[in-house]
Design a protein around this nucleic acid. Structure first.
Length: 484
DNA sequence: GCGATCAGTT
DNA sequence: CACAACTGATCGC
């Protein structure tokens, strides 16, 4: 695994930092951490890593700690915490102390305690909100996506965003809290960001990439989006338009495995093997440096064979993974699907009038109900909003299998929140003419037991009367052994 | 009333 | 227990 730069675990994004132009600023009333300035790459550090001598390597700077920690976050624990740990009993799994909040303190940032009013302050120098609707719609076709900036400037409206000035007036100064785009979402040497939509207009950002259509990545996108072009896969683009009502003139779909030149940087999207439309984003800068941003992905053998990786060295890997540890071994997708089909068949043998329910979020986990549908030759019932999304995938796999009436098939897809026993009981009542019991599958990203993670046969269903629920792992991103 | 954000849920 | 990805409640304008 060539890990040069990794983004911290996702929830770190939710941390709130005071931001003041080019430095991370701590609370005025607490100067113990001082001001940490950013290096030219946007890394908050006081001592440039390459300058750090072995003696200085003990110094706790963000960059030094970050690189030193490798994949074992425990090296970032404070000394007191280390003392409390019992090495004999302490497996890596006793990770309760590895709270991300601690890392922030160790890195020299103080979390804002009163996070009550978080404001996103748009960049004033940019062209926020200055683009009239349709002003770029003629550029929808991606020929030279880098045109965006010039199109906007042609309108001659590089003016301060009126909204932002209104906001600033209402600030009393000392209470100002700004959520700024974290460094690891910016691609050094470019004006690009990845999955950075919730920070308003990101200073200097002229192209916003979206890795995939999950809420924790697209957060901030809405019909009011006006901060710049959004580059993503065609399917992700369709979903952004359909579900979030983003003005299509901002959406620039990039086909997979196709090299585009955007502002002088070569950009290629690669299928991430995560949810439909999810992409790895490969950047090749004019100076030859190659960066790979993984977003969320599930590594597979096929990926290692891609020309981009075989022939070129990736200089910086942006890897966001919670499971970068050998203890995590997820079952192979095929094994999980075979298992689900086997359980379903067995259950139907014993209880022929069973309604089979699969839980799913807006997108992802489709393979689970698709596998059942194929194996049993039954259609898939989903509500109108999900059908709309599934049809947007543009695959006959879905269009040929969907049905609009729950009475016509024993296989239903429901929102994950409906998979509670009580909810399922109520749901069964609405189909009581046809079905007398429910078999529900809840594909989750997490199981507590490491053993069960390895052995599907150890999964035990939870049954309450005629409702039977199986919780199993259907991870859509990589376990340790799958990283390369 | 609406969108943004937080807190709670599975 | 702890994770991803919501969903519903609350806040501020």
């Amino acid at each position: 695994m060539s890990l040069s730069t990794a983004s911290p675990p996702p929830s770190l994004e939710d941390e709130c930092l005071h931001h003041d132009s080019d430095s991370y600023n701590v609370n005025d009333d607490d100067t113990s951490f001082g001001v940490v300035s950013l290096d030219e790459e946007g890394f908050p550090s006081q001592v440039p890593l390459e300058d750090a001598s072995p003696n200085e390597s003990e110094k706790s700077t963000f960059a030094a700690d970050f690189y030193r920690c490798g994949s074992d976050w425990s090296s970032l624990l404070s000394p007191e915490v280390h003392k409390q740990r019992d090495p004999a009993r302490d497996s890596i799994s006793s990770g309760k102390k590895l709270k991300q909040a601690n890392l922030f303190q160790i890195w020299g940032f103080k979390r804002n305690v009163d996070v009550g009013s978080v404001e996103v302050e748009p960049n004033q120098g940019g062209y926020c909100d200055e683009v009239g609707e349709g002003s770029v719609s003629s550029e929808r076709k991606i020929v030279k996506p880098g045109n965006w900036g010039s199109i906007l400037r042609d309108k001659g409206k590089v003016v301060e965003n009126p909204k932002s000035s209104t906001k600033r007036k209402s600030f009393s100064g000392e209470n100002r809290v700004t959520r700024s785009c974290p460094f690891y979402k910016k691609m050094p040497g470019t004006n690009f960001t990845v999955d950075a939509f919730r920070y308003g207009c990101v200073e200097e950002c002229s192209a916003y990439f979206l890795s995939h259509f999950h809420a924790d990545h697209y957060g901030g996108l809405s019909k009011k989006w006006s901060h710049g072009p959004i580059y993503c896969s065609p399917l992700t683009g369709r979903l952004v338009q359909m579900c979030l009502y983003v003005n299509p003139s901002y959406i620039f779909p990039l086909e997979f495995d196709t090299e585009y030149v955007i502002e002088g940087t070569k950009v290629t999207l690669i299928d991430a093997n995560h949810c439909p439309g999810a992409a790895l984003i490969h950047f090749e800068l004019p100076n030859g440096q190659c960066y790979l941003h993984t977003g969320d992905f599930r590594a597979c053998k096929l990926m290692q064979g891609y020309n981009l990786f075989v022939n070129k060295r990736v200089n910086v890997l942006y890897l966001d993974t919670t499971y970068c540890n050998p203890k995590y071994k997820f079952p192979f997708k095929e094994d999980v699907l075979n298992y689900v089909v086997k359980i379903t068949k067995n259950h139907l043998k014993m209880h022929p009038r069973t309604l089979v329910v699969v839980g799913a979020y807006s997108i992802g986990k489709e393979c689970v109900y698709l596998a059942i549908s194929k194996a049993l030759g039954v259609k898939i019932y989903a509500n109108a909003s999900r059908r709309r999304i599934l049809l947007a995938y543009g695959s006959p796999d879905y269009s040929d299998r969907l049905c609009t009436n729950g009475n016509n098939t024993l296989l239903h897809v429901l929102p994950m929140s409906s998979l509670r026993i009580e909810t399922l009981k109520e749901y069964l009542k609405t189909y009581k003419e046809q079905f007398t019991s429910v078999l529900a599958f809840r594909p989750t990203g997490w199981t507590f037991s490491e053993k069960i993670g390895n052995d599907l046969e150890l999964i035990r269903p939870v049954s309450r009367g005629n409702i039977t629920t199986y919780v199993f792992e259907a991870r859509q991103d990589s376990s340790y052994c799958e990283c390369w």
